[in-house]
Structure formats: structure tokens, C-alpha cells
Simulated assay, not measured.
Amino acid sequence: MRILAIRGENLASLAAPFSVDLAGGPIGATGIFAITGETGAGKSTILDALCLALYGRYPRVATGGRERAPDPGGDPITIGDERAILRRGATEGFAEVDFIGRDGQGYCARWSVYRARGKANGRLQNKTRSLTRLADGGSVGDSKAGLVDAAICELTDLTFDQFRRTVLLAQGEFDAFLLAAEGERAELLEKITGTAIYSEISKRIHAGAEAQRATVKELEAHRDAVGLLDEAARAEKHAERARLQAEVAGLSGQLADLNAALAHARRIADTRGLVAAAESRLTVARQALETHRPDSLRLAELDAVEPLREPARNAARAERDLTAAEAALVLA
């Protein structure tokens, strides 16, 4: 984000229209400058106009207080109402900021307010805000649609609180920082820059480290409580381990033999089951054979006379031929 220009009119002590060009002229060429002037000349008002145009608020009234102050319009306003920046006796005022957004394009953010009927004692009307592109004047959003705040945060990558803590440090907070004691300065700096979260992270890391140190000490105590064996005891333990390993090897061999015997017994049991099933089928077959024995004998007889079937047919044919021949003989 880069600020190009700040403009405004009828804001606090600045009655006449003003314009600060930060992109051209001596200021643009210098790159660094200071705003100086007498108290009440409007130095802070220029920075207020910057915040008003971008975010519709400025640090000096960014408070949730409910105290009310009189207004020429008749209705008192709260001390946190940014419309109170309108100069006394003025009927309208505005603040504008030209800037380059994150996308590299130029934009103009505007904040304005006016009094009813164009009179100095008219009732304050609602503020209006807009955001337009410098290149073509096209509107990016308006305050009624609620798009200006979202667009500003997107284009600047800063919320109002982040902007006033990093870009625009409020005068009261800076004075407090400069005059603070050395012990309080770090706390104020965290408050101004919003980096208190890092202190909290550091505290949590320290607490976690202490807890881990306590755990390590406890583990070391347990380790130290374990006694070490002398050389003779270690030799005895090694000998016992060798004896047990030998026993395990022997038992492993026995286990292999037992597993083989068990597998053989299972095969025998399976074979016996198959034999019993075969015997049962054989008994059923024998019973069926006894039941059908007459049919078997009849089939045996038929099988025995089957070879005589053709000679019998030939004999019958010969007898028919003989009868026919005798008849023909008698006729002859």
C-alpha cells in the first residue's frame, strides 16, 4: 500500500480545503518529511482525515464510551462519534485519500458528512463512504452495501487496528511509550504493536520446557535407581541364558516331532473316516444287489441265449421258405 494524496475540508481546525500530494512535488521527491506547526494548527487532523477516508474512524475517537456532548443540531452525540470532527459552523465536510492497493491499481477512498437543509444548526446526517478506481472512476463499493470496509482491508491488507498500530501510531500512545520507565516500555510496545501474543507464546513454551525438564529428571531418577550387576553376577546370568537357550532349542526339536506326529495322527483319522464311508457305501450296494438278484438272474439267462437269436431267426426264415416250396410243389 502507498498513500498518494490526502484531501479534506471543514475537519476540526482545518476550515479551508486542503490537499497534500505525497506522490509529486518536493514531498514526492524527498521520500521523508515532517508535519510541523503550532498546537491546534491541524497536524493531527490531517492524519485523522487519512483514517477517516480509509476506515471511517480515527484513533482519537475510536472508543466505545457512551458519554455525550452537545451538538448545534440539537441532538447530543457520543464522544466516539467520528462525525464530531465536522468543523463548528460548517454544513458539510469530507476526507479523501488516494492510494495504490496491493493489486498495483490506484483508488480513491472518500468519507463525507453534512447537516440537514444545508444549515449550520441542521441535524447531523449519516456519514457516507465510497471507494472508486482512479483509472476510470468506477465504483468498487458503497457504505450501504457494506463493501467499502471489506475492499479496503483487502486492498491494504490491514484492518483499522493494524493500520493505527503499524502505520499511524496515535500521539497519546507514542508519548506514553517515550515517557515510560524501562520496565514498562516493553509492555507498552507490545500493546502498541499488538505483539503481546508472542509473549504469551514464550510463556507457554517456557512452561512446557519446565514440564519436560521435570519429566527428564524423573526418568533419570528411575534410571539411577536401577542397580548394576558385578562381573560374577553378569557371568552367572550369561550362563543361565545359554542354558535356557539350549533348553529352548531342545524343546523346539520336541515340538517339531510332536507336530509331525500330530499331523500323521490327523491323516490317519481322516483316512479312517474315508474307509468308514466306503464300507457304508459297500453295504448299501450289497443290499441293493440282493434286492435285485432275480433281475440279475433273468439278465444272465438273456445274456446266455443272446447268441442264439440270429440262428433262431434263420431257422424261422427257412421254415417259411420250406412251407412255400412244398405248396409250390403240390401246385406243380
Score class of each variant (00 low, 15 high):
K191F: 03
E319D: 13
I79P: 01
S143A: 12
Q212P: 01
L131Y: 03
T78F: 01
R243A: 15
A15D: 09
D142I: 04
A246F: 06
L302H: 10
A324I: 06
A276I: 02
T195N: 05
K43L: 06
A209L: 13
H222R: 15
V20K: 05
E200W: 04
K237E: 09
L302Q: 13
L274C: 02
A150R: 11
G253P: 02
A285M: 11
A328F: 05
R272V: 10
D136N: 08
I268C: 05
E182D: 15
V330L: 13
A285E: 13
G183W: 05
K203S: 10
A120S: 13
G74M: 04
R117T: 04
K217R: 15
P70E: 07
A145E: 14
T283K: 12
A316E: 13
I32D: 10
K43F: 06
L289A: 14
L178R: 12
E240R: 11
I268D: 10
T323N: 11
R165E: 05
S280P: 03
Q245Y: 05
L274A: 12
F163Y: 15
A312D: 11
K203D: 12
G183M: 07
L297H: 10
L189E: 14
L22D: 06
C51S: 14
L274W: 06
G183Q: 13
A90H: 04
R68G: 02
Q105Y: 06
V148C: 00
A242F: 06
Q162P: 00
P59S: 07
G28I: 07
E173D: 15
D149Y: 02
P294E: 06
T39R: 07
G194F: 00
F177Y: 15
A261L: 11
V97A: 00
T291S: 09
A278P: 00
R267S: 11
I192M: 07
T45M: 01
E9M: 10
V216M: 13
D257C: 02
L11K: 00
R309I: 13
P307G: 07
T271L: 15
